[in-house]
């Protein structure tokens, strides 16, 4: 298409008749191209507040659309549709339907933080991406991303025992993401570990896997952390207009 502006119009809004003659003038094909006007009627005026209520999204209101984030973004360099600047714009205007068109790529942020480094207004766009991905999950538009699942496995274990045990984290993570435990790279890594590690260290690791030791006196800390996490989760669900029942203190 020689006219680049055409690429900016969604295909469903471009119409042309293959065979059309009006008043004796043949306007078949692209001569009859008609662009359907785009009318946006559904705004979610709370969208900015919703994103701002999630960790990382607090400073979205500072954005003045300079595009530093998008220009610094390595994911954008590979996929021009990955555009943090544009999503911040949509969120601030409350254009939820528009945002949802990109729901399958928003979570692809690699958290390199280049955008946060270049942003002249300290919007922390990486945080906004995180908050937006989180929002998509809480609203049920996206299944939980692998990185969220990993965070959950990781923190659940810390909450339960006050410690982390890498072997168990990997096992649980694979289970939750439906991956087989026997993966070539993992087998290879364990083989090399077995051949290279001192016996004493291996025994300590083996015992830790079997008996799952806890940090001494962890109970009160665990209770406090869990209370705080529930409180925060309930707060976020409320801010998003979702049912805030679980652990809700009101």
């Amino acid at each position: 298409m020689p006219i680049h502006e055409k690429s900016l119009i969604r295909p469903e809004n471009l119409h042309s008749q293959e065979n059309l003659t009006i008043d004796g003038v043949d306007v078949s094909g692209h001569w009859s191209t008609f662009i359907e006007p785009r009318v946006v009627t559904d705004y979610n005026e709370n969208l900015e507040d919703e994103i701002a209520a999630l960790p990382g999204g607090e400073y979205i209101h500072r954005c003045w659309q300079c595009g530093s984030c998008t220009n610094a973004c390595p994911v954008n360099a590979i996929n021009p549709d990955f555009n943090p600047r544009f999503w911040i714009y949509l969120v601030r205007l409350g254009m939820e339907d528009e945002l949802l068109r990109d729901k399958d790529i928003i979570w692809q942020c690699v958290s390199c933080n280049k955008c946060t480094y270049v942003c002249p207004r300290d919007v922390a766009p990486e945080g906004v991406m995180k908050a937006t991905a989180h929002w998509l999950e809480l609203k049920g538009h996206r299944p939980k991303s692998p990185s969220i699942l990993f965070d959950e496995v990781f923190s659940e274990q810390v909450f339960a025992t006050g410690k982390i045990e890498e072997g168990r984290i990997i096992r649980d993570f694979f289970k939750r993401t439906g991956q087989p435990l026997m993966q070539d790279w993992l087998v290879e890594m364990v083989k090399r570990l077995l051949s290279g590690l001192p016996l004493k260290l291996m025994m300590t690791m083996g015992l830790a896997t079997l008996f799952r030791p806890r940090t001494r006196g962890w109970g009160p800390a665990r209770a406090a952390i869990e209370e705080y996490v529930h409180e925060k989760e309930a707060e976020q669900r409320r801010a998003l207009g979702l049912d805030g029942s679980a652990g809700d203190i009101e």
Binding site: E5, L8, Q65, T70, N71, P80, R85
Partner: peptide, 11 residues
């Protein structure tokens, strides 16, 4: 110089 024309959303 790499930039995005933010008005038309094109790199």
């Amino acid at each position: 110089v790499k930039g995005e024309d933010t008005l038309v959303k094109r790199p």
